[in-house]
Design a protein around this nucleic acid. Sequence first.
DNA 1: ACCCGCTATATATTCGAATATACAACGCCG
DNA 2: CGGCGTTGTATATTCGAATATATAGCGGGT
Lengths: 122, 122
Amino acid sequence: MKRRASGGRKACVVRGRVWVEIDGKPALTDAGADLLEQIGICGSLSEAARRLHFSYRRAWLLLDSMNQRWPRPVVTTATGGQRGGGAKLTELGHQVLGAYRDLQMQLEHQLDAGSDPFRLLL
Amino acid sequence: MKRRASGGRKACVVRGRVWVEIDGKPALTDAGADLLEQIGICGSLSEAARRLHFSYRRAWLLLDSMNQRWPRPVVTTATGGQRGGGAKLTELGHQVLGAYRDLQMQLEHQLDAGSDPFRLLL
DNA sequence: ACCCGCTATATATTCGAATATACAACGCCG
DNA sequence: CGGCGTTGTATATTCGAATATATAGCGGGT
């Protein structure tokens, strides 16, 4: 059970972001992970972009940069066909996304603990 | 001693940022901490801005927002006088900066460990 | 009285990131 | 074959953040 130091004060929280860089350039960011996740769910880049309120261009650019930075693509795409085409996570894509979500969880735990020192200063 | 899985591959690192929010708005960011630090060192907002390659306006705006978000100012300023005026960290400013640097250290340690899973995927 | 460096503030401009829009190619399906 | 919903690409535009620039006020020193 968590204990509050005193009566209702200001809402003070520590937030954080993490991302992966390869050769000094971003290879997996928060937005990139969300995009991979949605592609995994709905199998379409344009649909994933719609759900995340990304413009298609932004989503495509983001995906392209990820595919280029990792040694092998994280998503494969196809044009034409039954549903007009589609996008699918590769095995690497699944692994990379999973590792990122794990990292996020760990970070969240740390930030919860790390916010106490600041609350004491309010 | 740390062990490398295999021969020289791509440079893969996990990076991260943390910041403090009060009432949902940023109260201490990376740039803000750097600014506080330099003010503490040189005792001048404009000099701190020069050292950090911030425009004076950006530095002033940043400082102003910090002073407003925390319940009491993190920096006090004076105009005129021997050196034309100056800026000085308050006690709260010192405490806040110290807590932030501590948090950054903890984060860095975690990110070092957290980057291993990604290196395995390369 | 003047000068100097700094705080404080207003305005214009630049710059990058994101959006909006348009369009060609692809391939299945009716 | 023609329509549909994708991927892929080019171009113009918007928007916010940052810079650049200018100016006023302060207060001790010379």
